[in-house]
Design a protein around this nucleic acid. Structure first.
Lengths: 167, 167
DNA sequence: CTAATTCAGGATATCATTATCCAGAATTAA
DNA sequence: TTAATTCTGGATAATGATATCCTGAATTAG
């Protein structure tokens, strides 16, 4: 779901990968430290994004995850679709949860909603990770070694005191 | 949440109430039988709608629930708001789940999303239960005593074999 | 080759949503 | 007044989303 934490986390994680100029991949631990997304959950999400060929994984020392596609071409729609069980997504299904919902057999919101979903998809297909990332880029300070979110950005993101934080 | 089953159920239940011309209220059991919404869940939803003054409840024989407002004036927005914990709703909050998300401190999707949410709200504020109900009205056959959904509509709604069905 | 690093993915825990159940209060019919 | 009907609201169960943990496989450095 677009509105799920899983999607939020994925976008944050990908935004971070997009800020990396070097080809060196980022480890799960690093992404967690920089984005505040729960470490083990980052791992799960990246497994999914790997299958969707959005990121490439590499085992071993100096391994990790890196974007596999140009962030300027990676749309939110593709990201959302990768994480969504499409058969469940409200973007591709009846809002009223009807088994059948078509122009012939419309649910009570069919006409309204079909349009709304199409508009939303269009929007998601327009915004790229590169664009989205720009707005967040300033949240990261990449100078020192064990960088973390700035105090101010911790407040913005609403974490920094999360359980499971390793540093 | 707009996309929650709870909301779907509420809209279906209210659609049914809107089809009743008489002033006699409908019982939870009746609404369940006519809409297919799980009986005990209908009860919970109506308790909520009662508190929101959208329906009126009446105990005892010949009691039940009836619309308290004109279905031509009851908007989906009001229904959704009644069921939503507004502080959690994606319509009123940051899609990225940030603690703070404003024009000054935008999340990476802020500009895109603020607009999308506003449009969605506008839509929800435009559609009334009366209008929504019209599309579904034909799903009900109100001739005989223990009316149920037609076979065809059972298929459309994707239920009719649900556990807990009493008839 | 060995040890260290890192991902892969199954098992499990936690939590919110969805769904059910039941005892008690209110109301009504007779 | 009594019994039947119906809502009220708390307790509980089932399910799905979120989050954690751990073992094993892949990779690399030395």
């Amino acid at each position: 779901m677009i509105y799920s934490k899983t999607c939020q986390y994925a976008i944050r994680a990908l935004n971070y990968l997009a800020t990396l100029e070097t080809k060196k991949p980022a480890t799960v631990g690093e992404v967690h430290a920089k984005t505040g997304v729960p470490q083990a959950y980052v791992a799960k999400i990246f497994q999914c994004l790997t299958r969707a060929k959005i990121v490439a994984s590499k085992s071993g020392p100096n391994g990790g995850y890196a974007l596999r596609v140009d962030p300027a071409k990676l749309t939110l729609l593709r990201v959302v679709d990768a994480l969504d069980d499409v058969s469940e997504s409200p973007l591709s299904n009846c809002v009223m949860g009807q088994a059948e919902c078509s122009d012939r057999n419309p649910c009570c919101l069919h006409t309204v909603w079909v349009k709304a979903a199409a508009e939303m998809k269009k929007k998601l297909a327009k915004v790229t990770i590169l664009e989205a990332g720009k707005a967040t880029a300033r949240a990261y300070r990449s100078e020192t070694g064990r960088t973390v979110l700035s105090r101010r950005m911790q407040k913005v993101f609403g974490y920094g005191t999360a359980k499971g934080d390793r540093e």
